[in-house]
Amino acid sequence: MAELLSKDMLVDLAINLLNIVILFLITKALLYKPVKKYLDARKEKLEQEKAEAAAAQQAAEEVRQTYEAKLSDADAVAAALIAEKRGEAQKTAGEIVSAAEADAARIREKAQLDAAAAREEALESAKAEIMESAIGISEKILRREVTDRDDRRLVEDFFSAVAGEGQDGQ
């Protein structure tokens, strides 16, 4: 046993331990800090990218919500506009129909008045023709039947009108 732990071996062990420590210290000085720094930087970068992604997602969500709200508003505006225009069209159609009905009524009334006027004119024309014929016939009869006795009666009528009976000679 003592041979196992000889002085040389202890020195070697100490030297090895020292080498390990030195190596550890060198490695720590040369590698640990840069690597840690690198890892910290990378972690920080990852955290930053994660935060940026979250912010981007949040912004996207807000844009989506804004877009959906605008779409909803646009749908409502479009629906209101369609309803308004439909109402205007119905009102215009109603006005056109009413105007057409009024025109038709006026035309019917005018046609009735024109027909009545035409009937009246035809009646007056027929009446005038009948009167003309009657007067023409009467004239022919008078020409045939009038005698000097009728002339004498008219002379008496004249003096009865302008002179009066019994006032001759003034």
Partner: peptide, 22 residues
Amino acid sequence: TGETMSEETFRLLTERMRKRYG
């Protein structure tokens, strides 16, 4: 006058006119 008035009736007319107006 027309053709129907006789001379006698015409004379009666003129005589009545003279009696009335001189």
